[in-house]
Design a binder for these strands. Structure first.
Lengths: 160, 160
DNA sequence: CGATTTTTGCTGCAGCGCAACATGAAAATC
DNA sequence: GATTTTCATGTTGCGCTGCAGCAAAAATCG
């Protein structure tokens, strides 16, 4: 049974953001990890945009009177957030998105990337996962972590 | 019905290479495109290794007494080869592989990337394609070009 | 042969990503 | 409370990725 989430352009973003932060805090607490200011800021920057951001875009958005964080700083925060399932990397874009956390840690996630608005939706689908596993096994291959990214046009941009 | 190709470590590489070159020549002839020396060299470099190569690795391998090609030169050759279905880009590696040409132009291809030996196999599977399409549609998404890359361990490296 | 298209070479540049080391802050142990 | 250990951040530096823009050379066409 497919389950998909694509951010509607008119969704309650305030709410969606605070929910995600609350989830991140809970997740970190549960794992005895620390959601430090730096990490929180990076996550917030990603949440503020439902589009994937490149590392240097994040740096740009975190820049203020106190200067801007060094690339490595942002990358480390991103590593942490990814390790804890709060952020995904979009390989085909060299960019990152906050996770919609509509899926369990090891679920196969399908990223739907809109070519018009750039928004990224996440879908989880057991059927796809099964078919993929079967396909890999048939080649004598033991799959670890599948990456699935689909470019296309989302419903809000008139794709039909 | 899944169809998969994973290069066996003891396969006839001589043959496999010359076949691929012949295919490339045929493909280019059919499309009235030119398989120039540069393009051929890049393709040969990729064929000589069943592992994906980064652009600068290709440059390295093409370097000789006459100097080395500039990055842009290799990228242009790669663009050409990709446009004509002779080379794939492995997004998760920022690298390129020669196409096993075991699939039609628009088929969905699943890349199986061995974490041990680095070899890349290609699988084509209608079931996966169907499931993916269904999943995307359910989210109101019109898919264009899916990218599927699976890291894991291949049969020859003891994956089971 | 001359004109057009295609391909290659050259310069330069911006983003990506991390290694190695130093510093500072927090948590655990005594 | 002081010390040790652990973790997080800052600093410097560098190599890879990828392409724009322009000029020169080669192939194709009329």
């Amino acid at each position: 049974m497919p389950r998909a989430i694509f951010p509607a352009p008119d969704h309650d973003h305030e709410r969606c953001t605070s929910d995600a932060i609350a989830y991140a805090e809970a997740q970190c607490a549960a794992r005895a990890k620390r959601l430090t200011p730096m990490r929180r800021q990076v996550l917030e920057a990603l949440l503020a945009s439902h589009n994937p951001l490149g590392a240097y875009e994040i740096i740009e958005r975190l820049a203020d009177k106190n200067g801007r964080p060094a690339p490595i700083t942002v990358y480390r925060a991103l590593d942490f957030l990814r390790d804890n399932g709060l952020v995904h990397r979009i390989e085909s874009r060299n960019a990152f998105v906050a996770c919609g956390h509509n899926h369990g840690g090891d679920d196969l996630v399908v990223f739907l990337i809109c070519e018009r608005c750039g928004a990224v939706g996440e879908a989880t689908d057991g059927a796809v996962a099964q078919a993929l596993k079967a396909s890999a096994r048939a080649a004598g291959f033991s799959p670890k972590s599948p990456i699935i990214e689909i470019a296309g046009v989302c419903a809000h941009c008139g794709g039909r």
